[in-house]
Design a binder for these strands. Structure first.
Length: 113
DNA sequence: AGAATGACGCTGA
DNA sequence: TTCAGCGCCATTC
């Protein structure tokens, strides 16, 4: 794997960019996609380091519990995430929960990487 | 170097 | 179903 943290971010962002509009992916799903099973947290860090605004559809990444990861450190980006998901046709309630099962993205095989 | 932190995930109560 | 606890691991203090 990459010892270079910047390359790690690049891989995460590259994988997130594959998520189609109106679909959802989990942090663990992104990690698995880039061949990093068990590193879902690091995916979260990579997205935190993502400079905004960005072309990367970071808002389509949620946690396995099926809700937006709310955190003060996000400085409101979590709220923006909710807004953008609703704009893409994905209903999100006041608690940030959403029907993950229904909009779950089927990621391509890891072997393609 | 050691401890704390966190945009996570799974298991069990 | 909701919630606490634990494992996880790079980053930060």
């Amino acid at each position: 794997m990459a010892g270079d943290p910047q390359l790690w971010d690049q891989r995460v962002w590259n994988a997130v960019a594959l998520v189609p509009r109106g679909r959802l992916a989990t942090y663990g799903q992104i990690a698995e996609l880039i061949g990093a099973w068990g590193r879902a947290r690091q995916v979260g860090w990579a997205l935190r380091r993502l400079p905004l605004p960005s072309e990367i559809p970071w808002h389509r990444v949620v946690n396995a519990r099926g809700c937006i990861a709310m955190a003060p450190s996000r400085e409101g980006s979590d709220w923006i995430q909710r807004q953008r998901l609703i704009a893409e046709g994905i209903p999100v309630d006041a608690e940030g929960r959403l029907p993950l099962c229904r909009f779950r993205w089927q990621a391509p095989a890891v072997s393609s990487f």
